[in-house]
Amino acid sequence: MTFFSKKIKQDDETQRNGARLITFTEPKNIISEQFRTVKTNIEFAGAALDKLQVVMFTSAEISDGKSTVAANIAITWAQAGKSVLLVDADLRRPTAHSTFDIPNTRGLTSILASDMQPKDLVRETFVPNLSVLQAGPVPPNPAELLGSKRMTALVNWMRNNYDMVVLDVPPVMAVTDAQVMFKLVDGIVLVTTIGKTLKANLKRTVETISLTDAKVLGCVERVKDKSNDAGYGYGYGYGYE
């Protein structure tokens, strides 16, 4: 697989307007079928694990499309009949509240910084079988909250209440938030954008993950044309060659 060097440009569209839920709005679209194929491949990759229940979606850089991929893969699991919880753990650039049109006055940060209970903040969505936990107010110490014992307890609660948990976390190269959560998940999916994601950053991301016990399930490659997403692919090439 080939990755092109290009100056990183921050794209705030998803943060402003939410992710495009094409798997829900256009289930027969070819991109929706690609997302279902990605879901199946993630399950195949996780078959060798003791369990595949909590899956982290991250990227090397910002604006690689991880939130869009995480939300749509969560929907495909929900459409397959599983009870799914999508957690917006990107406390710096949250998107789930915009995607599902819910207030972000309370959420994950409220649980981690107080004695609020998840059952009181998790919301059902317009997608059957899919619930969401929005990020909540942006805290001054995101990494400390995500690496806390309370976060560990929260993930255990999620395991006991949902078939699948999808964690949307910040890019690995940008901040340490994702790294402090590696130990909590069963597998990690990396999202890249062809023609944007820098090969060196992707390689460093894989190397960072390899220093832990975390399992990389694969890489979702996002292709964009001038107007919108043009397609998604899945594989194990990380741009080393």
Rank of each mutant, 00 (worst) to 15 (best):
P118Q: 10
N129L: 13
G46L: 12
V172A: 05
Q134S: 13
I62V: 13
E221D: 12
T14Q: 13
I188L: 08
S227I: 13
E144I: 09
R222M: 14
V206H: 02
D115R: 05
T105D: 15
I62Y: 08
I102R: 07
N156P: 00
Q117E: 13
L121N: 00
G107E: 06
V132N: 01
T208E: 06
G187Y: 01
A214C: 05
L154W: 01
V87A: 00
Y232H: 04
D120H: 13
P128L: 09
M56A: 07
G195A: 11
T197S: 15
C219W: 03
V169Q: 02
N104S: 12
E221P: 03
K82F: 04
A45N: 00
L184P: 05
E61V: 07
T192Y: 05
K6M: 07
T2L: 13
A70K: 03
N72H: 09
V69M: 10
A214W: 00
K226D: 06
T40R: 12
M151H: 05
H97Y: 13
A78P: 00
F4T: 12
V55L: 10
T76W: 11
W77G: 02
K203V: 14
V69P: 05
N41H: 12
L211K: 15
N72D: 08
K224I: 04
E207S: 15
A143F: 06
D229Y: 14
L21K: 02
A89K: 01
A47E: 13
D225S: 14
L145P: 06
G18R: 08
S110D: 07
P171Q: 03
S32Q: 09
C219H: 02
C219I: 14
T25Q: 11
K39Q: 15
F126D: 09
C219D: 08
L211W: 08
I188R: 00
A178E: 01
L217P: 02
L198Q: 15
K51I: 04
A153N: 07
E13R: 15
R93N: 04
L121I: 10
I188H: 01
L133A: 00
D225K: 12
R150H: 05
L85T: 04
A71C: 10
A48G: 14
D90H: 09
L202T: 09
I22R: 01
I42Q: 08
I31E: 05
T76A: 07
A60K: 00
G81S: 10
T193K: 13
R222T: 11
E61T: 09
I8S: 07
K28T: 15
M151Q: 00
L184S: 04
T99P: 07
R159W: 12
T25W: 11
V166L: 11
H97G: 06
A89C: 09
K224C: 15
F24A: 15
I8C: 04
R93F: 13
I194W: 03
Q79T: 06
D88R: 01
T99M: 14
L198M: 14
L146Y: 01
N17D: 11
L211C: 01
E61H: 08
